[in-house]
Simulated scan of single mutants.
Amino acid sequence: MRWIAGGTYTGEALDFARQAFGSSQLDRKVAIVLTDGRSDTRRDAKPLSSLCSVPNIRVVGIGIGDIFRWASYATMLEEITCLGTASPGLYLKITDDVQLLEDSFFNNVTGYICQDKKCPDYTCPANFQEATDIVFMLDGSSSVGQANFYRAREFVENMAARLLSQDRGGLLRLSVMQYSDGQQQRVEVPFTARVEDVLTGLAATLCMDGATDLPAALAFLTSTLQREGRSAVPRKVVVFTDGRSVASAWAAIPRAAAALAENTQLLAVTVGEGFDEAGVCQLVMGQANGFDYHVVDSRVHRVALYSDLARRVVMQSLARKLSKAL
């Protein structure tokens, strides 16, 4: 999906949606409209209430502040969501699109949609179909900072609890490693299927607070997996990284990543905008250039802030990526 970047013909868009609903045979219909509440009503002849004529529909309007931080227009949102009709909808106003990720917001929307029947399960379960060894590699570099390191550590604790507690078939093992400069790599939690082992090991894990040597970390990972990993079992490795490494080692990233066994897949977690895109691509692709960005996108987990790692939706999304077959 690409940004159209044109004028705002909201009525035209809603009428297009109305026509799409025309062929639906279902008893219940839901439309969720994300908008800043503005529309070029002088040139757009279609009414903002276009969806209100669709039988058995619930319209949810989400008013988001625009790029100038102006609040969404309530009057247009009311018209879009059929307020004042026999089947009024719901509109919610938020100031920033980041709020779309908040659990309370998500619960408000799904609670309204499913108010007269049991909601489907939106917990995004990670269903592993085969035995898998999972490794989390924490970046203990000084550039991360101790506060952010401990946020990442807490995220791994939560992920471990989620993955292992839901593993009814005993398919998963999980390990945690930490890396920093060329001489500092360590297994913080050996492979285990017990949540308690992970929590105990991470509680004693302190930030190394050194430089960053990603190729050395990957070499350590390779040797550890050769000793401790199950040979015939897929391996998923989640690396916290900004794609950077000391200058003397940077060019070795793709070679070190490519040296991992074929049944090993690297995923990267990046935080903020200050990461080295080429370095991250080399890490997850195991090659110096010619990246397939569809593959890169499926293997890179981006969050805006370290505090976002505490959001349930971030954990759900990564768990789903981990559960997909190689």
Rank of each mutant, 00 (worst) to 15 (best):
residue 278 A to D: 13
residue 300 V to D: 08
residue 286 G to H: 05
residue 285 M to H: 00
residue 271 V to K: 02
residue 297 D to E: 14
residue 297 D to F: 09
residue 299 R to V: 10
residue 272 G to H: 07
residue 265 Q to H: 06
residue 291 F to K: 01
residue 265 Q to F: 04
residue 266 L to E: 01
residue 266 L to A: 07
residue 278 A to C: 13
residue 284 V to L: 06
residue 277 E to N: 14
residue 281 C to G: 09
residue 292 D to K: 00
residue 300 V to Q: 10
residue 272 G to D: 07
residue 281 C to T: 08
residue 283 L to Y: 04
residue 291 F to T: 05
residue 280 V to L: 04
residue 279 G to H: 02
residue 273 E to W: 11
residue 268 A to S: 12
residue 299 R to S: 10
residue 274 G to T: 10
residue 297 D to A: 15
residue 288 A to F: 08
residue 294 H to M: 13
residue 269 V to F: 06
residue 277 E to M: 13
residue 289 N to P: 01
residue 300 V to Y: 02
residue 289 N to C: 11
residue 277 E to G: 14
residue 282 Q to N: 07
residue 284 V to G: 03
residue 267 L to K: 07
residue 275 F to H: 11
residue 284 V to D: 08
residue 279 G to E: 01
residue 296 V to T: 09
residue 270 T to V: 14
residue 284 V to F: 02
residue 268 A to M: 06
residue 273 E to D: 15
residue 284 V to A: 08
residue 284 V to E: 06
residue 299 R to A: 11
residue 279 G to W: 03
residue 273 E to A: 15
residue 267 L to F: 11
residue 292 D to R: 04
residue 277 E to D: 13
residue 297 D to Y: 10
residue 296 V to P: 11
residue 269 V to P: 06
residue 296 V to R: 03
residue 290 G to D: 02
residue 274 G to N: 13
residue 286 G to M: 03
residue 290 G to K: 06
